[in-house]
Design a protein around this nucleic acid. Structure first.
Lengths: 197, 197
DNA sequence: ACCTGAACACCGTTCAAGT
DNA sequence: ACCTGAACACCGTTCAAGT
C-alpha cells in the first residue's frame, strides 16, 4: 500500500496534493492543469483520465477541503475539554486558522454561487459543519443557549465564524487583531443567544 | 458631456460597465479582456491604454463596487427612518441584497488575501463600511448598544453581515430563508451587544 | 486501463507602427 | 494621445494512437 511512483497508479492523489499546494501558494486562478502535469512528470493530457476537466479537479479539492476542515474542527473541539464556552472559542479559532492558512481553498469550498455545488461537495460541507451544530446542541442541553430548532441558531453561529474568516481574509482587519475579533464575536454570539434563564 | 462613441474617448468607462456585467453573469474567471474588446468593437490591445493589465481592471471594478455598495447602504439606512433597530435591519438587508446580486463582484472586492489590496481600493472599502460604523455610533448614542470603542463592535457587526452574505452565497442556506437568517443574526447581534442597562 | 503527442481555439501581454 | 496588427508564450480540451 506504500506510495508508488506518481505516474504509475497514484496520479489522482498526486494531482490533488500538488493542486492543493498550488492553490495555497498561488490562488485558484493560477492553478494550471498543464503545470501540474509538468511538475508530476506526465503528459498534459494525463490528468484527464482522473479529472475530466478543470472544474472536476476543483470540486475534488473542495470536497477534500471540507473533509480536512471537519477533522480540524472536531480535533479542536475535543481538545478543548468539556466546558461549552471554551469549546466554542477553540472551534471558532480552528475555523479561522483554517480559513487564514487556506484562504483560496475556502473561497473554492464556498464558491457555490457561480458554479453550482455538486451533491458530493454539499454532503462534505454538511459533514464539516455538523461540528458547529453539535456545539449548539451541547449549549442548549446545558441551558446556556436558548432552546428552539438547533438549525436556526446553528446557522447564526456558522455565519458568525464565516464572517470572522471573511473579515480577516479580506484584509479589513490586521491578522494580529484576529484573536481579539474571534473572542469578541463569539462572546457576542453567546450573549445574544443566551437562554433567558 | 454626453456619451460619445465607445472607441472615441469613453473606452475606459465602457470597459468598466461591460466588465461589471460580464462578472455578474459569468464570474471573474471567465472575464476576458479580448472578449470585452470584441464586444466594444476595438482591437484587443486597446484596453491596455486604460488598464495596464487584467489585474488593474479588477482593482477598478472592486473600487467601483465599494462605491456603489456604500451608496446603496446609505440609501437603505436613511429610507428606514430614524429608529435604530429597523435601520440596522434595513442596512443589513441591503448588504445581503448587494452580495446576492453581485456575488462574484463581492468576492473580487474582498479578495484581499491573494492579491494585496490597493490603497485606493482600501479607501473605497472603508468609505462603504463607514455606514455600518455610523450605525454603531447611533446605537451607542441611544444607549441601545454597549459603549466602548465603536471600532470593536463595528467590526463584529461587519463580520455578522459579511457572514450572512457568505452563508447565503455559499448555498448553505436557501435564498428563501435569507430574510429569516438576516433577522435572526441581526437580532442576535443587538442582544449580544446591548448595553447592560 | 492508462498515458502520449499533435492539434485547435482560446488567452494575456508586448511592441513596432499607424493616425 | 489613442488605437491597430502581428507575434509570443501560455492555456484547456479533444482525439487518434500507442502500451
Amino acid at each position: 500500500m506504500g506510495p508508488r511512483a506518481y505516474h504509475h497508479g497514484n496520479l489522482r492523489a498526486a494531482l490533488l496534493e500538488e493542486a492543493e499546494k498550488s492553490v495555497r501558494e498561488q490562488g485558484i486562478e493560477r492553478l494550471s492543469l498543464r503545470e501540474l502535469a509538468r511538475q508530476l512528470g506526465v503528459s498534459h493530457a494525463a490528468p484527464r483520465r482522473h479529472f475530466p476537466d478543470r472544474q472536476a479537479l476543483l470540486y475534488a479539492l473542495a470536497e477534500a477541503g471540507f473533509t480536512r476542515l471537519g477533522t480540524e474542527l472536531r480535533r479542536a473541539m475535543t481538545r478543548a475539554g468539556e466546558e461549552f464556552e471554551p469549546r466554542l472559542q477553540a472551534t471558532a479559532s480552528a475555523y479561522v486558522r483554517f480559513a487564514t492558512r487556506d484562504a483560496a481553498l475556502l473561497d473554492l469550498m464556498f464558491a457555490g454561487k457561480h458554479n453550482e455545488p455538486t451533491p458530493v461537495v454539499q454532503e462534505a460541507a454538511l459533514g464539516a459543519l455538523s461540528v458547529l451544530f453539535e456545539l449548539v446542541e451541547q449549549g442548549q442541553a446545558e441551558g446556556v443557549l436558548e432552546q428552539g430548532e438547533p438549525g436556526r441558531v446553528g446557522l447564526v453561529l456558522f455565519a458568525t465564524v464565516q464572517g470572522i474568516a471573511a473579515v480577516v481574509n479580506g484584509g479589513i482587519v490586521d491578522a494580529s487583531q484576529s484573536d481579539a475579533l474571534i473572542a469578541d464575536a463569539i462572546a457576542n454570539f453567546i450573549r445574544g443567544s443566551r437562554a433567558a434563564a
